[in-house]
Design a protein around this nucleic acid. Structure first.
Lengths: 214, 214, 214, 214
DNA sequence: GGGTAACCGAGACGGTACGTCTAGTCTTTAA
DNA sequence: TTAAAGACTAGACGTACCGTCTCGGTTACCC
C-alpha cells in the first residue's frame, strides 16, 4: 500500500520555482503564521458550504480570513491547492482502516470509505475539484497527487495482492479493475449525487468486488 | 425509444422567459441569420481545438465569428449551451446505430459508440462540459438534457429490454447497471483520457456487458 | 424678421440625402402613418417628463410608441430632431405676439415670451437640447435652425429697427446686443434654473432693454 | 475670499461612501501611483483634442494611458470628474491675477481671464462639461463645485465690494449682476464659439462692467 | 540588543471577461 | 412603398477577480 503523499502544505516552505537549491535549510526570518494558515483553511471550508469551488474566489477567502491575498499566494499555487488543503484539514476525513482479513474485504472497506467521503458537502467539493482538474494542468497535478493517485494506488495494491492470492481474476488489467471499481462511484457522484446514499454504500462495494472476483 | 428532447437550438426562437404565450405563431421581424449561427458554431469549434471550455470566452467567439455579443446571448443562455450546440453540429457526431440482433449487442454497440465519441478533442470538451455542470445548475440542465440523459435513457432502455429477455440479471437495479456500464468510461475519460484508446474500445464493451449478464 | 423655418417634419417626405431629385412628387405606396407620428411625439414628450434628453433613447421611444425603430430613423435624422419636433408639437408653445408699439416694447415682449418658454419642464429640455448641440454637429444644426436662429433673428431685427429709430445705442454691435439680452437668460437657465421664476420674468426684460437703450 | 472647495482629486484617498471615519489616518496598503494618475490625465487631455467629452470613453482613456479601467473608477466617480481634473491639471490654467486697483478693474480682469480660459479647445471642453451637467446630477455637482461656483463666488465678492464702495449700482441683485456679466460670455461660447475672439476679449469686459456701474 | 530576513495586512496595479445596453442598419411580412 | 417587428454588428458601460506589486509594520534568528 503505497503512501505517496503529494502536494499538501505541511512543510512551511513557500512554493518554489522548483529551481533546486542544495540545502537552503537555514530558516531565517519570521516563521509562517499558523494563525493565518488556519484562518485561511477555516474560511475556505466555511465559504464552500455556501458556494462551489468555481464560485469561490481567492479574494473572498482573503477577506473572510482577514488575510492579505499575498499570504495565500505565497503558500499555495492556486485555488485548487487551497481547497484541497482545506478539505484534508477537516477532522475525521482521514480515518485509518482496520486491518482486513483478505483482499476482498480490503477492497470493500476501501470503497466503503470512499463512498462515505464523497457523501454530502465534501463530495460536491471533490467533484468540483475533479472538474477543475479537467482543464487546468496545475489543478490536475494537485488533485491527482493529493487525492486521486493515493486512493487509486491503494486500491491497485489490493487488487494486485488479490490477484496473486487468486481472489481476483488474474486476467484483468489492474487499471481496468480500478475503473470498474471506482468509475461507477465517481460517475454517480457527478451525474446523480443524491443517489450516493446509504443504500448504495451498503450494496455497491460487495457488488463491485464480485465483478472482479475469480 | 431514446428520448431526444433537450435544449438544442433548432427552432429559431430566441430564449424566452418561459412565460407561456398562447400561439404567438405569426413570425414577424427579421428572421434569424443562419450565417451568423453557423459562424458562431464554427468559431466555437475552432477555438476549442486550442483551448478548454473554461478558457473559452463569449467575447472570443463573438470576435472570431465577427458577430455581436448580443447575437450570442440572444440565442443561447450561456457558454455551455453554445459549446453543446457546436459539438452536436459537427458532422458525423450523431451517426445512427445499425439494428442490433439482441440487447447484449445493442449495449455493446452503444458503449462502442460512446467511447468513439469521447475519443480525442471532443472527449476533452465533453469532460469539460460535464465539469461545468458540476457547479452550475443551468449548465447542468443543458448538459444533462442534451447529452447525458438521452444517452443514458437509451442504454437504460436496452438494459430493461435485456432483463425482460433474460439476457441480463433481473435482480440488478437499472440505475446501478448504467453506472456499472458507463461509469468506468467516464472515469477513465476524466482520470486517464489517454487510455481511452482503441484497445479499450475493443475490450471494454464486451467485458462490461458480461458483468451484467445473467 | 426672417422666417427661416428649419427642420421640422411637416412635409411627409422622408429625410433625404439631399441628392436633389427633380420632381419625385408622384407619391406612391403606403402613405405616412400620422398615427405613428403622433404616437412617437407623444411618447417622447411623455418620457421627457421622467428623464433627460441624454437619458432618452430611440429604443425607449420606439418601445413606448409601439413603433419600429426604423420608422423613427426614416423620418428624423437623430434624437435631437425627434425631441425638437415633440417640443414644438406641444399645444400653446408657439403663441403669436401682440403688435408692439415700439422696438423697446418688442424686445421686452420677446424676452418675456422666451423666459416663459424656458420655465418648467420645457426649459430643462431646451437646456438639454442646447447641450446636445455642443458636441454633435447634426444636433447643433437642428437646434439652431429650429429654435435658436429664428429666435435670435427676430430679436436682432428688433434691435436693428430700434437702432434706426434711435431707441437703442447705434454703436452697439447687434450680435453683442443679442448676447447681452439673451445671455443672462440662458446662463440662468443652465446654472440656476430654479431662479428662472416669475420675479425674474418681470424684472429682467426691462432691466435688459435699458442696458442697450440710447 | 473665493471658496475653492470642490471635488478635485488632490488627496490620494479613493472615492468614499462618505461614511465618515474618525481618523483613519494610518495609510495602509500600496500608495497611489502618481505615474498612473498623470498618465490618465495626460491621455484625457490628449484625446479631448480630437473628440468631445461625450465621445470620450473611459475605455479609451484607459487604453491610451495603459492603465486598467479599475484604476480610473477607483479614483474618479465618473467621466466628468476625470475631464475636470485633466483640465485643471493643465499648466497655466490657474494663473493668479495681479492685484487690481479697484473693483471695477477686478471685474474686468476676472472677465478677461475667463474669456481667455474659454478660448480654444479648453473652451469647447468646458462647454461640453457644462452640457453634461445639465442632465446628470453628479456631473452637475462636480462641474459646479470645481469650476463654476469658485468662479462666480469670486465675481460676486468683487461685485459686493464694489457696491459697498459705490462703484456699482447698489440696487442690483448680485445674482443678477453675475448673470449680466457672465451670461453673455457663456452664451457666446455655446452659440457662436468662434466669436469668442480677441476682439471680444478686449471690448466685452469694459462694456459689461459699465452696465453695472453706478 | 541590534541587524537582517522573511513574514504579515492592506490595498493599488494592469488586465480580462462578464452580461447589459444603445446606436444605427438590415431584412422580413403585412397592409 | 411604408410600417412593424425584430435581428444584425459594434462597442461602451461599470463590476468582479485575477495574480503581481508595494507599502508600513512585525516577528524571529544570529551575531
Amino acid at each position: 500500500m503505497t503512501q505517496p503523499a503529494a502536494y499538501i502544505n505541511d512543510e512551511d516552505t513557500p512554493k518554489q520555482d522548483s529551481t533546486l537549491k542544495v540545502v537552503p535549510n537555514t530558516k531565517k526570518g519570521r516563521p509562517r503564521s499558523t494563525k493565518s494558515k488556519n484562518a485561511i483553511l477555516k474560511a475556505t471550508n466555511s465559504l464552500l458550504l455556501h458556494m462551489s469551488v468555481q464560485e469561490l474566489s481567492i479574494e473572498a477567502i482573503a477577506k473572510k480570513a482577514k488575510v492579505g491575498k499575498t499570504t495565500i499566494y505565497r503558500w499555495w499555487p492556486n485555488k485548487t491547492a487551497v481547497v484541497m488543503d482545506a478539505l484534508i484539514s477537516q477532522p475525521g476525513i482521514q480515518s485509518p482502516l482496520p486491518t482486513p482479513k483478505n483482499n476482498t474485504e480490503a477492497i470493500i472497506m476501501q470503497l466503503d470509505k470512499l463512498i462515505r467521503m464523497l457523501d454530502g458537502n465534501n463530495g460536491e467539493t471533490i467533484a468540483q475539484l475533479f472538474s477543475e482538474a479537467q482543464a487546468d494542468e496545475k489543478a490536475q497535478k494537485i488533485f491527482s497527487g493529493t487525492f486521486l493517485t493515493p486512493l487509486l494506488d491503494a486500491i491497485e495494491f489490493s487488487v494486485q495482492e488479490g490477484q496473486k492470492a487468486r481472489e481476483f481474476r488474474g486476467s484483468l488489467d489492474p487499471k481496468m479493475a480500478i475503473d470498474l471499481l471506482c468509475g461507477p462511484i465517481f460517475f454517480r457522484l457527478m451525474s446523480r449525487p443524491a443517489d450516493l446514499n446509504e443504500e448504495f454504500r451498503e450494496t455497491y462495494p460487495k457488488e463491485a468486488v464480485r465483478l472482479i472476483s475469480a
